[in-house]
């Protein structure tokens, strides 16, 4: 089974001209974990994910791992202030390079291997064509879902 058969194609994307507010609403309402952002030529410009946003609102010395345990500080003023500041930001400031892009020809096992070994953990993998246009998204559940359907079809002719 190839990535092109497993990926979900009804994906929601935003363009680089949308606001961060739009992105947050989508992340909240639709409960997607990764939001691909495309440029004017419909090519992938980057992604936005809630985890990356959290990383941005934490002070650098915490998000970069120099101070992992902050149990001693009940709350930090900087954290709340940074969250408030989010509203003023443009979507372009928060684009992160997607850690992993695959082609539609990638096999199910390779996709599974990427998920298992990804560090930091991946929520979904984006499938793109040669021109970096988005074709679909694959999450770990998708792999099982499609493989399951595939097996069932084969055993019940």
């Amino acid at each position: 089974m190839l990535a092109s058969k497993m990926m979900s194609t009804d994906i929601i994307t935003l363009t680089i001209h949308d606001t961060l507010d739009d992105a947050l609403k989508l992340l909240y309402d639709v409960k997607v974990r990764v939001l691909p952002i495309v440029d004017d030529e419909k090519k992938l410009a980057g992604v936005i994910s809630p985890r990356l946003l959290l990383r941005r609102v934490l002070p650098g010395y915490i998000s970069k791992g120099y101070l992992k345990d902050v149990a001693f500080a009940p709350d930090l003023s900087q954290f709340m202030e940074n969250i408030e500041k989010l509203n003023e930001c443009k979507i372009g400031d928060f684009l992160e390079k997607p850690c992993c892009l695959i082609t539609p020809e990638t096999s199910a096992m390779e996709v599974a291997a990427i998920f298992v070994n990804a560090d930091p953990p991946l929520e979904s993998i984006i499938v793109v064509d040669d021109e970096k246009r988005i074709l679909g998204l694959i999450s770990p559940v998708d792999i099982f879902k499609r493989l399951w359907e595939f097996n069932n079809k084969q055993t019940t002719p």
């Binding site: 002070p59 010395y61 120099y66 930090l76 900087q78």
Partner: peptide, 10 residues
């Protein structure tokens, strides 16, 4: 140094 930054932030 990281804790110092946290304290001066506060």
């Amino acid at each position: 140094a990281p804790i110092t930054l946290l304290i001066t932030d506060e």
